[in-house]
Each structure stands twice: as structure tokens, then as C-alpha cells.
């Protein structure tokens, strides 16, 4: 009796694992499949590098070029990572040196609150409070790439902080006693031994955070300006995710526009997946 129960349990859990696995892989394959038709109309090169995005035929034909969206996504996410890098590393240093174990355990949940705040709320507050500041500095409508990057940087900070703090704490546990036993100041030791040794892991965390930032939709959509132009820091731009969110509702099903949007999703998904896979391989090897 027990034996059959055990067997059922085992095969049930096994089945669900593989169902989940297949479902996830299916999602990836499906996006690819739904995107393919667009490449009959436009070449891959033109799709990725083209600068014109005219999905609806007003009499001048349609064009599907994603260059500005790709640039917009990259620009906003990279700036966000750079901004977040400073705050995150600073906070991680504080948490690993100044805060003791108990304090860390209580502070982490507070920082993780940031990761729970809905993206729309971030966009909303930025629109209400920060946009006017940018407007008073001359940015038309107050929305620009930089503003979106600032919002994004706050959103990705908790992820960088948790991973970098973990690195710092491990290294600190390894070396700090020896450093202090030599009479050397702990911040000196932190700066000259632990920080340099953490660089690789920090860079890895930053790249992963960059992927997160690239996929963020709502907050970016609300404050980036959404103009299909060459994105500049104080100018407007549009991210790939915003593009999909804004145009999917109006795209006629199974039209070229529709396929193009799926292809845009494919570009986004593929970029993030490739970076992730490469990074995980890389970090596994070096640990």
C-alpha cells in the first residue's frame, strides 16, 4: 500500500516537473513561431537595424525597423545600472561592515519592499514628483530617458544589494579577522582587499540587473516619452517593452503589425536569455 503511494507521489511530482519544464520551453518556442512570419516581409537585418517604424500603412507602405527601440532599451537600462551601481554598492558596504547579522536580517526585508512596489506606482510617483523638475529644466513635458533611468535604478537596487552584500559578507568573514589582527583599520581592509576581490561578482550582478531593467515595462512607459526617435539622455525614447504594451492592443490579429510586435518580443526575450545563459555559465566556472 505504501509502495503504491510512494510510486504515485514520485511519478506525480516528476510529471508536473516535466510539464512545467515543457510549458516554459513551449513559451519560448511559441514566441519564436509567432514572430517568424514577419521575416517574410522584412529581413532580419532590416528589422533589427532599420530606423523607421511605420506599422500601419497610410499610403506610404509599412516599415518595421527596431533600431531606435533597441537603442532606447539599452540606453535606459545601462544608465539605470550605472546610477544604481553607486547606491547599491554603498548600501552593500554599509550592510556588510556596519550592520551586524541581526541588523542585516531586519534591513533586508525593508529594502526588498522596493522590489515589491508595483511598477505603475513607481511610474506614477516619478510622473508626479520628478517630471515637473525635469520640465523646469527645459525638458519638454518633463519626460525623458534619464528620468526613466532614475526610476529604473531604484527598482533594480534591491537585487544588486542582496547579491553584492552576500559577496561582501562572505569575503569579510574570510579575511577581516586577519586584517584586524594586524591592527589594520577595517575600512582600509575593505577598500584594499575585499572590494577589489569582489569586482567580478559585482559586474555579474550588474549585468543581471541590466537584464531586469531591459524587461521593465510600465514605469518606463510612463516617463520615457515614447517618441520613436533616436534616444538621447535628456530626450525622449521608447523601449521595446513599451512598444509592445502600447501597440499590442491595436494591432490586428495576425497582421504584419502583430507579427512584428511578437518579433520585437522575441528580440527582447532572446537578448535577455542569451545574456543570462552566458553569465550563469561564466559565474559557475569561476566559483
Amino acid at each position: 500500500m505504501n509502495k503504491t503511494k510512494e510510486k504515485i507521489f514520485k511519478y506525480f511530482t516528476k510529471a508536473l516537473t516535466y510539464i512545467a519544464l515543457s510549458m516554459l520551453l513551449f513559451v519560448i518556442c511559441f514566441i519564436v513561431k509567432e514572430a517568424l512570419p514577419i521575416f517574410k516581409v522584412v529581413s532580419v537585418k532590416e528589422f533589427v537595424l532599420g530606423t523607421e517604424w511605420v506599422p500601419i500603412d497610410f499610403g506610404f507602405g509599412t516599415k518595421y525597423g527596431m533600431r531606435y527601440f533597441i537603442m532606447g532599451t539599452l540606453l535606459v537600462s545601462l544608465i539605470a545600472v550605472v546610477i544604481s551601481m553607486f547606491i547599491s554598492i554603498g548600501v552593500s558596504l554599509f550592510l556588510s561592515v556596519v550592520a551586524n547579522d541581526r541588523a542585516r536580517r531586519n534591513i533586508f526585508p525593508v529594502i526588498d519592499l522596493l522590489s515589491g512596489i508595483p511598477s505603475v506606482v513607481y511610474g506614477f510617483i516619478a510622473l508626479e514628483l520628478l517630471s515637473p523638475i525635469f520640465f523646469s529644466f527645459g525638458v519638454k513635458t518633463g519626460n525623458c530617458v534619464l528620468l526613466a533611468a532614475i526610476v529604473l535604478s531604484i527598482m533594480i537596487t534591491p537585487y544588486i544589494v542582496s547579491s553584492v552584500t552576500y559577496t561582501f559578507v562572505n569575503l569579510r568573514n574570510k579575511y577581516m579577522i586577519s586584517i584586524k589582527n594586524l591592527g589594520i583599520d577595517e575600512w582600509y581592509g575593505m577598500t584594499t582587499i575585499i572590494l577589489p576581490k569582489s569586482v567580478k561578482r559585482i559586474v555579474l550582478s550588474l549585468i543581471l540587473a541590466n537584464c531586469r531593467a531591459m524587461g521593465e515595462t510600465m514605469a518606463v512607459m510612463m516617463v520615457m516619452g515614447n517618441a520613436i526617435v533616436l534616444p538621447t539622455i535628456l530626450g525622449k525614447g521608447e523601449s521595446i517593452a513599451s512598444l509592445i504594451a502600447l501597440e499590442m492592443g491595436t494591432a490586428v490579429r495576425e497582421s504584419n503589425h502583430y507579427y512584428a510586435l511578437y518579433a520585437a518580443g522575441l528580440v527582447l526575450m532572446a537578448t535577455v536569455l542569451i545574456i543570462n545563459i552566458v553569465l550563469h555559465k561564466f559565474s559557475k566556472e569561476s566559483t
Partner: peptide, 17 residues
């Protein structure tokens, strides 16, 4: 800091930088 400069400590497992 001064104390540990004048009193050195070596542990069982050597920790090199």
C-alpha cells in the same frame, strides 16, 4: 589598532590575502 600592532596573533588556519 595600536594594541594589535604590538600584539600579533597567528591562527590555526593561515589566511593569506
Amino acid at each position: 589598532s595600536t594594541l594589535r600592532k604590538e600584539i600579533a596573533m597567528l591562527m590555526q588556519m593561515p589566511v593569506v590575502f
